[in-house]
Design a protein around this nucleic acid. Structure first.
Lengths: 198, 198
DNA sequence: GTCTATACGAAGATAGAC
DNA sequence: GTCTATCTTCGTATAGAC
């Protein structure tokens, strides 16, 4: 019986999941403004009648779900890097963002950042904060395991997240990978020197 | 006669200037979505009839002007730092953003970034790119003068801009100066070690 | 769960008087 | 240069049938 319920829920949430994924993609490409229900429905092919069935609280609920999705996906990737050196973790995190830029031909960025700078909802801001904080904390944990002191690990984790986000924005604006790659090179070098203190 | 013309232009552009400044402030606080004509007029007290008189090309023209304003203001500050050491320049640039955060009680960020992640206009993207590039170039020049090699200077300038922008976003989301200050400490230390190579 | 239709408001933009 | 009025489009949200 449990299996039946699970299956029903899975079926029921399929459209919902597609909408959340679509919203996350649109946020990354067009920002909060460009992520309207119409756009989401067009992108996902979801039926218009499903909107307020799946998201009774309206747009904010959809956006919050998209933020959570984007956040947890990156977090899963980070957790796969356990045991790697600080340099390897740094390169892997940068690789995540590089692929976002390259695969979108420099048209996409970070969905969470896009919401942060465009919303006036405390709830959405808090959802974004949870994501950023979780990234920082998990990265810092990896750096600690990799040999950095706790404070140095926390500092470098914050810098890695901030500089990656900023590098993505710069490259999007300039329509060139140059700024991002400059930042990436600097971060990798910094990770190397932090891991082998004088 | 020239003075008369100049005066007329000055008077004519006073409302226009106020609108551009208001737009820049709103962009930094509420993003592109929240920077509507209504909001700009309410904030600046400008007459509604002036909108399409001063900005015949519509909203994009106003936003482009706001980007230029925000960009050139920061650039003026950077140019005032000629002769300073890399560490001092880094601290000054970070100070610019720290004051944006603190004075707004963590409610404002970078207007140029807000446009970059929310627009679909190639013109606005290009305007944002010009700003970011100019910041990177001028900062790199100061770092070169301060003793860094050209490539190292360009790399650290890009990192300083990117990490500052990202740090502002993180602190806004988390409603705490912590992430920004972690990033700031890391950047200052990096500037110090870059200026005195092993 | 999904559909159509529609209400409602906001925002960008235009017209014409003053 | 400024004002009022208006038009259009779009986005959110709701209602009620299927």
């Amino acid at each position: 019986m449990t299996s039946v319920i699970v299956k029903e829920e899975a079926v029921a949430s399929e459209t919902k999941t597609r909408m959340v994924e679509g919203a996350a993609r649109l946020l990354a490409m067009q920002g909060l403004q460009g992520t309207s229900f119409s756009e989401v429905l067009e992108l996902t092919g979801a039926p218009r009648g499903s909107v307020y069935h799946h998201f009774p609280e309206g747009k904010d609920q959809l956006i919050a779900a998209a933020i959570d999705l984007a956040g947890s996906r990156a977090l899963q990737a980070v957790d796969d890097w356990a045991g790697r050196t600080p340099v390897q973790v740094t390169e892997a995190f940068l690789g995540l963002w590089r692929s976002v830029l390259v695969r979108s031909e420099l048209r996409a960025g970070c969905a969470v950042l896009a919401v942060t700078v465009a919303t006036d909802s405390p709830d959405l801001l808090a959802a974004a904060a949870d994501v950023f904080r979780s990234w920082r904390v998990r990265l810092a944990a990896l750096f600690e395991t990799g040999g950095l002191q706790p404070q140095a690990a926390a500092r470098f984790a914050a810098t890695l997240v901030a500089a990656s986000e900023g590098g993505v924005v710069l490259s999007r604006a300039e329509q060139s990978m140059e700024p991002f790659e400059l930042v990436a090179a600097e971060l990798v070098e910094r990770a190397a020197s932090a891991a082998t203190p004088a």
